[in-house]
Amino acid sequence: MPNVTELELNFYLVVAFVILVVKIFTFVNALMFSGEAYEAAGKLTKPAWCLILGIGVAVNVLLLGSPISFLNLIFLIAALVYLADVRPALLSLTRR
């Protein structure tokens, strides 16, 4: 029977992995749209979003011991804003 510490550690690792996957997905997704699409959608420029999301991935990788640190949470919020606001706007421009 697993003890509470093992369960906490496993939960912590799953959360850390999910956060990393979300950040990597948003960064790669941001690279796939053209710079003109960002301008047409009225959002920050492509280099700005790629920089924000890329730094978020780097911070997550460098701070592996703490996925819920202040910096990681800030960049997770940025990734979630991208997913909730920017990505749908970009997709609506490229759909045919």
Rank of each mutant, 00 (worst) to 15 (best):
P2T: 11
P2V: 07
N3W: 01
N3H: 08
N3Y: 07
V4N: 13
E8V: 09
E8G: 01
L9P: 02
N10G: 09
Y12R: 06
L13R: 15
L13T: 07
A16T: 00
A16I: 00
F17W: 05
V18M: 04
V18L: 11
V18Q: 02
I19C: 03
I19P: 01
I19E: 07
L20D: 09
V21H: 08
V22Q: 03
K23V: 01
F25H: 14
T26E: 07
F27P: 02
V28M: 11
F33T: 00
S34T: 12
Y38S: 05
Y38D: 06
E39Y: 07
A40I: 09
A41F: 11
G42L: 06
G42K: 03
G42R: 09
G42C: 05
K43F: 14
K43A: 15
L44F: 15
K46V: 02
K46F: 09
P47E: 11
A48C: 06
W49R: 07
C50W: 08
C50G: 03
I52K: 07
L53C: 06
G54H: 03
I55Q: 00
I55D: 00
I55W: 00
G56A: 06
L64H: 03
G65L: 14
G65Y: 13
G65I: 06
S66D: 14
P67K: 00
L73T: 13
L73P: 06
I74V: 15
L76W: 12
I77C: 04
A78S: 13
A79Q: 10
L80A: 12
L80D: 04
L83G: 10
A84W: 15
D85T: 14
D85N: 09
A89Q: 12
A89R: 15
L91I: 06
L91A: 08
L93V: 10
